[in-house]
């Protein structure tokens, strides 16, 4: 079947079997999006994307569900202003995530920053658990998100102290 959807802001179209996983479709047809398809079991989180604004494990999404959807890849998100400010927060906190999970972590942290209530430590770890990479200790992730929050509020309210 032909699947039309929006990927990282662009209208795209490709042919795939209806029951192919979104992660495989992205990995094969749209390599520039750099979405992995490792475990195909919803575990490793290398395939997380934003699907219609929500975090989704692309290996659990069949192609037939993607028609008309808006998909944002972690790499593309990391290049947005929001993504860059999260990355700056991570850097300030000295969070050393690896090459494999950094964009996904930035995406998740970015979503946490949008949450009205403000995420507590448990909420941060809860959300980060979607990605199972062993490269970084939980306390660093919490510090990274906290630093990103501070940076963002400093930008919004430059005169506040």
């Amino acid at each position: 079947m032909t699947i039309d959807f929006i990927l990282d802001g662009a209208d795209v179209s490709c042919r795939a079997r209806a029951t192919d996983r979104l992660s495989d479709v992205l990995a094969q047809e749209f390599p520039k999006a750099c979405v992995g398809s490792d475990c195909r079991a919803g575990r490793c989180g290398r395939c997380v994307v934003l699907m219609d604004g929500k975090l989704a494990l692309a290996c659990l999404v069949p192609a037939f569900r993607v028609r008309g959807a808006e998909i944002v890849s972690p790499r593309a998100y990391a290049r947005t202003e929001e993504g860059e400010s999260v990355a700056a927060g991570f850097e300030r906190a000295g969070v050393a995530t690896c090459e494999f999970c950094t964009p996904q972590r930035i995406l998740i942290a970015g979503l946490l920053l949008e949450e009205a209530a403000g995420a507590d430590d448990r909420r941060i770890l809860e959300a980060m658990q979607t990605v199972q990479c062993r490269c970084v200790e939980p306390s660093a992730l919490v510090e990274g998100v906290r630093a990103a929050v501070e940076l963002r509020s400093a930008r919004k309210w430059p005169h506040a102290r």
């Binding site: 929500k54 975090l55 989704a56 494990l57 659990l60 959300a127 658990q129 979607t130």
Partner: peptide, 8 residues
């Protein structure tokens, strides 16, 4: 599960 699953 995890958040990426609960949204689906």
């Amino acid at each position: 599960g995890t958040e990426g699953l609960r949204n689906l």
